[in-house]
């Protein structure tokens, strides 16, 4: 049952991913991307990570894609960017093939040892998914978290400087 559902969602994800690059109108591409993000959120739910799913929909589908749509609509990008760039297709195709082989290699390389880590299904059930993520993020991974926040602050200041004529 679950595997059938997985295949269904995977099919939708792949088809909408394909539409992102094949649609002629940029708005339709953006919609395809939203759909892909939503399918990824469903995968997170199926992997028992509801927090990740909610954040995925909230941040990517709900905020970032709306901004992208906003820009597309504001600039009113038409379908004129339809010239084919052969060298672009060739190089990007080669690059994606290399990445695909890389991923397959990494998946096939290891063997499942069966060793159990600290966080099992039982701990997730009893402590809670959000609590576990929060605890690790603010203790073990505090430094990366703070670095990311400083990075975002720099980006905000940069955006303000770029947008404002007289600072």
């Amino acid at each position: 049952m679950e595997i059938l559902f997985f295949y269904l969602v995977a099919l939708v994800a792949v088809v909408s991913g394909f539409l992102v690059i094949r649609c002629q109108s940029p708005v339709n591409s953006a919609l395809g991307l939203v759909n892909t993000f939503f399918c990824l959120a469903i995968f997170y739910v199926m992997l028992h990570a509801p927090f990740m799913a909610a954040i995925q929909v909230m941040v990517y589908a709900g905020a970032i894609m709306v901004l992208i749509l906003f820009v597309i609509m504001l600039l009113n990008l038409g379908t004129e960017a339809r010239k084919s760039y052969l060298h672009g297709i060739v190089w990007s195709g080669l690059a994606s093939l290399a990445v695909l082989f890389n991923v397959i290699y990494f998946i096939k390389r290891g063997r499942v040892t069966g060793a159990e880590g600290d966080i099992t299904d039982f701990t997730v059930q009893s402590v809670g998914h959000v609590e576990l993520i929060g605890k690790t993020m603010f203790t073990e991974f505090l430094l990366p978290f703070e670095i990311a926040s400083i990075l975002l602050l720099v980006a905000i200041v940069g955006a303000v400087v770029l947008a404002k004529k007289e600072v």
């Binding site: 919609l31 909230m58 709900g62 998914h129």
Partner: peptide, 21 residues
């Protein structure tokens, strides 16, 4: 849902698409 509040925020965010589209 144990992420109920986030679920509401997530779907509130998706509501924009109808109007924008």
């Amino acid at each position: 849902l144990n992420v109920g509040v986030l679920y509401i925020l997530a779907f509130a965010g998706l509501g924009i698409y109808g109007i924008v589209l």
